[in-house]
Amino acid sequence: MLSRTADHLYWMARYIERTENVARVLDVTYNMSLLPSDSSNEEELWDTVLEIAGIRDIYDKTYKELNAANVIKHLVMDSSNPSSIYSSLRSARENARAVRVAMTTETWENMNTLWLEFGQYIKQDLTQTGLSEFCEWVKSRSHLFRGVCFGTMLRDEAFSFVRLGTFMERADNTARLLDVKYEFLIPMQEANDGAVDYYEWSAVLRSVSAFQAYQKVYRDAIEPMKVSELLILREDMPRSLHACYAEIMPILRQVAGSRQTEAERLAGQMHAKLHYGRMLDIVKDGVHHFLDEFILANRKLGEEIQRNFLSATA
């Protein structure tokens, strides 16, 4: 298929996934902020949200004060913030519109409805009320998007690139979330004589729909190492890094056909690391170190996908 068509489909899916993850983090953070705590803590809490989205710089240019209302505004409707839900949804729809003829009617109509309904939400002041409802709506719309693709699209290259976009973005988002929270929570734990903040860690799990999964798998108190294992190495945990690469690998092999691509090699390398890796070894070098390397490698893979498939010039 045309590279441009594949590119639009891939980015449409990435932007939808990004929107969902921003909403997840916002929702959980907002709920955390309702718990009793001192105000300095709350500022740090919202700071982690900016760190996860990687937009601290842009935020500081626009806002003087770090508080819930500003962060929500910035992440939901600020059109100058490329990672805001507004910007991501607009980009998703623009990409969809450019290749309307390449997708099923249902997929297009779903994208279009998503954008029209979003127009209703941004008329409300979400910093006051309705943030949770809004985040729920984003999540369910994202579920619907994946469902309509899965349920209506021919299993051809178009479908492959949509799926590829979803898992590339999800891998990045999960790694960022875990990395930032880890950095934030471990020093607190040390300061508190090793006491684990139950609420903080369960919030991390909830933001990737992994709270129930954790209890099922470990039947144990929440421990940072186990949370990390669940979100990095468990293949059966759908938002884990391993699960994402278990999807990415076969897709890249399929779209490459008989060609040998750098993208497939990089993905295979990372997949092996996640498939055969042990938490013990990861901890030895530091979880933060591992995640930083992962985020860079994932970005590198994104660049190779772009080069090998989406802008084929060579």
């Binding site: 590279s3 441009r4 290259e157 056909g257 084929a312």
Partner: peptide, 15 residues
């Protein structure tokens, strides 16, 4: 795009 006196289209399978 044009290369070596030929026209190519950019596809996911290469030019």
């Amino acid at each position: 795009f044009v290369r070596n006196n030929a026209v190519y289209m950019r596809t996911t399978q290469g030019p």
